[in-house]
Write a protein that binds this DNA or RNA. Sequence first.
DNA 1: GCCAGTGGCTTTCATTTTGAAAGCCGCTTA
DNA 2: TAAGCGGCTTTCAAAATGAAAGCCACTGGC
Lengths: 124, 124
Amino acid sequence: MPQPQTNFRSRCSIARTLDVLGDKWTLLVVRDLMWHGKHTFQELQASEEHIAANLLSERLKRLMALGLVAREAYQDRPVRYRYALTEEGRSLEPLLLQVMGWGHAHLGGGLFDPQSGQTVAEAD
Amino acid sequence: MPQPQTNFRSRCSIARTLDVLGDKWTLLVVRDLMWHGKHTFQELQASEEHIAANLLSERLKRLMALGLVAREAYQDRPVRYRYALTEEGRSLEPLLLQVMGWGHAHLGGGLFDPQSGQTVAEAD
DNA sequence: GCCAGTGGCTTTCATTTTGAAAGCCGCTTA
DNA sequence: TAAGCGGCTTTCAAAATGAAAGCCACTGGC
């Protein structure tokens, strides 16, 4: 439904998805919002991969512009924000699971179970 | 099974997959090898997104180092190569389908059917 | 009042990656 | 002899990343 962007490289859905999510950080932000209960800038920045603040700021802006993430102030004076996936953002869960499954099978990464909130297989 | 890389950012399977495939080009090369019958350097370079030759060269090297792609000389003198996915490389198909599905639903991209080799829904 | 601390950024700047273009190498064909 | 082909590599400017420091609006302690 949304028309978030028009300057895609091509009509290919894979190319368009990569235009929007194809970098080393964006899906990690989505992962933390989706499964790890991280909702503030600080919490997101403190993840084990240690994204730089300027990149996190830029990624959150892009995800908000795309309608995948929304933020609300949870306090005024000083204003503090809480970030959360929108319903559209939550539609990325199957993709995230697929990416995780492949990384587990082929790169020896851990396997997280969203149901239990537990990592059910350790990484090498 | 393979131990293609050891310098991952973290144990997370998503982070590891992004370390390896997280850029704007790698999955497009895989797409062309997987579905579009493109197997030579020239054919891959001629795709509608127009990857630069140096990037294509580097991506093919990385995919070969990872064991996802293999090449064979289809002629000597002068030597000419044909690139193809290995069995491990073909294991990326579900991921590619998921990425395509999301881009179709949320970014208005086309939908390709590997069975028929046809694009069954046009992009916006 | 003053200082330290907190949360959410923005700015700066060096390093790395990209993208476009041109060039090179080993041939074959006209 | 010259042109062309396929598969690259090199060059170099532009853009993206990454680490660090700085800024702003407060609050709480002394």
